[in-house]
Design a protein around this nucleic acid. Structure first.
Length: 432
RNA sequence: UCCGCGUUAGCUCAAUGGUAGAGCAUGCGGCUGUUAACCGCAGGGCUGUAGGUUCGAGUCCUACACGCGGAGCCA
């Protein structure tokens, strides 16, 4: 077999004869000349098959190729501004690997139901490939960011014996003789144990929510990254969060331009994402809502529409801090200046993409935490290990969680979370 | 759980209560520079399911199923 060259490496092979392998993305024919668009996962290449330049057999092979058939093609690479990608292959040989049956996803438009039913094939489409490559780059940026700052990856369990925060609905199942177990909704409590062992840690993995929620901002299975830092207060936490977001966005802007162009993303919106981000208190957020004519009662959580109104006031992510403690989880530390407030922060993405980060300083006082657990009617025995973290060398500590798919959606400018993960899991769909 | 909208060819959509149509895809033919190519021909339908109104229902009514969007909830 001749060595395979990838489309992304073609600049090194201009003027030379190479062999590429891939699938037929599209074909146009004009009698004695055929234009085959090859895709190989790294890009797209127009291959020209002239009847006069190849044997009858090769020309017939090119004729037989249907959309998504796999094949091998050999020819000389040349610069060609008229072709997609800027290069073109003057084919001398075409070998069929496998002829594709009638491919369901045609070049014309499709409805979302059809596409999601064919997700296993939809991921071959140009925009989906671009989104998934950006997702990959974001994941790498996340790991690089924390690794460069001395964080240690600390993997929490996915099977947990009880509800982490006592709020969300969880997926429940039988766990041998030990009774009910649950799929994790957050690795955060375990991350706190990690932070007290290793100083700075992060978790990164799938999490599960069983809420019967059906909106474009929801998945039942999604990925979350959760840093947790010993000796960080709320301000340190917010400093890290904004540095983190800036790094992710600027990395994608620098390294993923071609993909952002395929997605027709307005990059000027992303170029704004530079520190410092605006920081407003919950009280100030409520003021914005009241001034916008929203009938909002102090003490309620912000809804999706409220978040959009607030984020529309800014051209970069806005950090809303110090929420009423009644709408936040039991483990969040109270504001020493106002016991009704929790030292929490939510980061709202611009352009209506909503909450991408939720975080807080954690309650580090044993007695207060015990009190909170009773207040929330949580089973204390399940949290004894967590309370131990306050019994043995408790320190101020903070952390936050970033929803990966919401971040991918925002950066890619896509409408629905289901396009930000290869195989989305939603309330009425667990296939393919 | 609640509130809207939808379901017609493989796909995307048309069709005043009166013979079910187009584009794409597929097949055959034509074209030596195409960019979702183009031109000609052909095949392709229990109009989501079950009732009802009517001389006559894709169209009007009722129920159900499925889907999409939103609310609540959440990252």
């Amino acid at each position: 077999m001749r060595p395979q060259v990838y489309i992304s490496d073609l600049s090194k092979h201009v003027g030379k004869s190479v062999t590429l392998k891939g699938w037929l993305y599209h074909r146009r024919s004009s009698g004695k000349v055929k234009f085959l668009i090859l895709r190989d996962g790294t890009g797209y290449l127009q291959c020209v098959v002239f009847k006069g330049n190849v044997s009858t057999e090769v020309f017939e092979n090119a004729e037989k190729l249907t959309q998504e058939s796999s094949f091998e093609i050999t020819g000389a690479v040349k610069l060609e501004p008229r072709a997609v990608g800027g290069y073109e292959l003057d084919a001398v040989d075409v070998k069929i690997i496998s002829i594709s049956s009638e491919y369901p996803i045609t070049p014309k438009e499709h409805g979302i139901e059809f596409l999601i039913d064919h997700r296993h094939l939809w991921v071959r489409s140009k925009k989906q490939v671009a989104v998934l490559k950006i997702r990959h780059r974001i994941v790498k940026a996340i790991r690089d960011f924390f690794d460069m700052r001395g964080f240690v990856l600390f993997d929490p369990p996915i099977i947990t014996p009880n509800a982490c925060e006592g709020t969300s609905t969880l997926f429940e199942f039988d766990y041998f003789d030990l009774g009910k177990a649950y799929l994790t909704q957050s690795g955060q409590l375990y991350a706190e144990a990690g932070a007290l062992a290793l100083g700075k840690v992060y978790t990164f993995g799938p999490t599960f929510r069983a809420e019967k929620s059906k909106t474009r901002r929801h998945l039942t299975e999604f990925w979350m990254v959760e840093p947790e830092m010993a000796f960080y207060d709320l301000d340190d936490n917010m400093d890290l969060a904004e540095e983190f977001l800036e790094y992710i966005v600027q990395t994608v802007l620098t390294e993923m331009r071609p993909e952002l162009e395929i997605l027709e993303r307005d990059v000027t919106k992303l170029e704004n994402i530079k520190r410092p981000f605006p920081r407003i208190s919950y009280d100030e957020a409520v003021q914005i809502l009241l001034e916008s004519g929203i009938d909002f009662e102090w003490g309620n959580d912000l809804g999706g529409g409220d978040e959009t109104i607030i984020s529309d006031k800014f051209d970069r992510p806005v950090m809303v801090h110090r929420y009423p403690s009644q709408v936040k989880a039991f483990y969040m530390k109270r504001d020493p200046k106002n016991d009704k407030l929790a030292l929490a922060v939510d980061v709202l993405a611009p352009e209506g993409y909503g909450e991408i980060i939720g975080g807080s300083q954690r309650e580090d006082d044993l007695d207060k935490l015990l009190h909170r657990i009773k207040e929330h009617n949580l089973p204390q025995e399940s949290f004894e290990w967590y309370l131990d973290l306050r019994r043995y060398g408790s320190v101020p500590h903070s952390g936050f969680g970033l929803g990966l798919e919401r971040t991918v959606s925002w950066i890619c400018g896509i409408e629905h979370l289901r396009e930000a993960i290869p195989f989305p899991r939603m309330i009425y769909r667990n296939t393919p």
